[in-house]
């Protein structure tokens, strides 16, 4: 966090000087959105929800926090990649969420207002999408909650053919930097939620099930999902 702030400050000063000289400064590289950037394939796109922010945001005291993006994330995926999760059944660590229904996770509606999200209790919780058959997963695009700037803790996304996630588990995203969810320590950065969602490069991980974990967020202790999109090719 400290290193990032220092770098950011230096960049800002440098940008001021460069601007005054009539030169275009380098783009800020701190935008969240895509977790990596393959160099070949076709661009992935989706319908993005409108911005709808409510109220005064709460402080986010998270190390290495990546700020919200200002544009849609970009990712190249293999040709023939399609959305394979819409309408697929969803289970969770809680059978009955506190708010909403688990089916909202794959209902295709990504809006930010009341009645569009599912809320699970505090602690480490997960939702799991059953793709119906094994697939080669190119990307997972997730919107936790975007009507308030916040960051979710210990976001871990896994793919497996085992519904219990005991064997053959591929972890495609993990920002649990201190392993507090006991799923292994991750090196991905925590990020601020936005209408652009977080687009994760799954790099062709194979499996029938996609499981997403989190452990509360910077505004409250609860876990939320508006929508999860899984892109890939069924096998």
């Amino acid at each position: 966090m400290k290193k990032q702030h220092i770098a950011s400050t230096v960049f800002t000063i440098a940008a001021l000087v460069l601007s005054s000289c009539g030169k275009k400064p380098p783009q800020d590289s701190t935008d969240a959105g895509a977790s990596s950037a393959p160099t070949s394939g076709v661009p992935l796109s989706t319908e993005l929800p409108p911005e709808l922010i409510e109220g005064t945001p709460k402080p986010m005291d998270v190390p290495n926090l990546v700020q919200a993006p200002v544009k849609a994330p970009e990712l190249l995926v293999p040709e023939g990649t399609t959305l394979i999760s819409q309408g697929k059944p969803v289970t969770g660590s809680e059978e009955s969420p506190l708010i909403g229904e688990l089916s909202m996770v794959t209902d295709g509606d990504k809006q930010a207002g009341e009645g569009y999200y599912v809320e699970l209790s505090s602690g480490t919780q997960w939702v799991q999408i059953d793709l119906g058959q094994s697939a080669e997963v190119a990307a997972v695009w997730v919107w936790h909650f975007h009507s308030q700037k916040r960051a979710y803790n210990d976001v871990v996304i896994q793919v497996s053919d085992d519904a219990e996630f005991k064997t053959g588990v591929s972890t495609i995203y993990n920002n649990d930097y201190d392993d507090s969810s006991k799923l292994g320590k991750g090196s991905d950065s925590p990020y601020v939620e936005s209408r652009f969602g977080m687009l994760v490069d799954a790099k062709g991980a194979k499996g029938r099930y996609v499981r997403l974990h989190s452990q509360g967020n910077t505004s409250d202790e609860m876990n939320h999902y508006i929508e999860v999109e899984v892109y890939g090719k069924t096998l």
Binding site: I53, G55, T56, D109, G113, E114, G115, S147
Partner: peptide, 18 residues
């Protein structure tokens, strides 16, 4: 003062199905 961003002052949305 309480200065709140225009982006944080939008109307609150809801799912018309509910």
């Amino acid at each position: 003062q309480w200065n709140r961003a225009v982006s944080s002052s939008q109307d609150i949305g809801y799912n018309p199905k509910l």
